[in-house]
C-alpha cells in the first residue's frame, strides 16, 4: 500500500483523531492514502465508523503494541 501522508495523533483523545483526519484529508487529493497513528483505544472502532459517516474509504487498521495505525483513502 502506498502511503501519501502520515498524521500523528499520539496522545490525543476523541474527537481529535477523527477531526484531525478530516482536516488533513482536506489538504490531500482524491485517491491519496492517509496513515493515522493513535493510542486512543476507541480509535480502532471510531475510524471505520467515521469513514461510513463521511463517505471516505476505510482501508484497514493495524495494531502495534498500544499504537493503532489507521488507513483511509480520500474519496471525495
Amino acid at each position: 500500500m502506498k502511503i501519501d501522508k502520515t498524521l500523528d495523533c499520539i496522545g490525543l483523545f476523541c474527537p481529535m483523531p477523527v477531526v484531525k483526519t478530516k482536516l488533513e484529508l482536506e489538504t490531500m487529493g482524491i485517491g491519496e492514502v492517509l496513515e493515522i497513528l493513535s493510542d486512543d483505544p476507541g480509535f480502532e472502532k471510531d475510524l471505520p465508523a467515521w469513514c461510513k459517516l463521511s463517505g471516505e474509504e476505510f482501508l484497514e487498521i493495524k495494531k502495534e503494541g498500544n499504537i493503532i495505525k489507521g488507513y483511509v483513502k480520500k474519496n471525495r
Binding site: 476523541c14 474527537p15 477523527v18 477531526v19 483526519t21 478530516k22 482536516l23 467515521w50 459517516l53 463521511s54
Partner: peptide
C-alpha cells in the same frame, strides 16, 4: 462540542 465537531468532521 465533542459531538458537534465530530459530526461536522463527518460532513454533516
Amino acid at each position: 462540542f465533542t459531538l458537534a465537531t465530530t459530526a461536522a468532521a463527518s460532513n454533516m
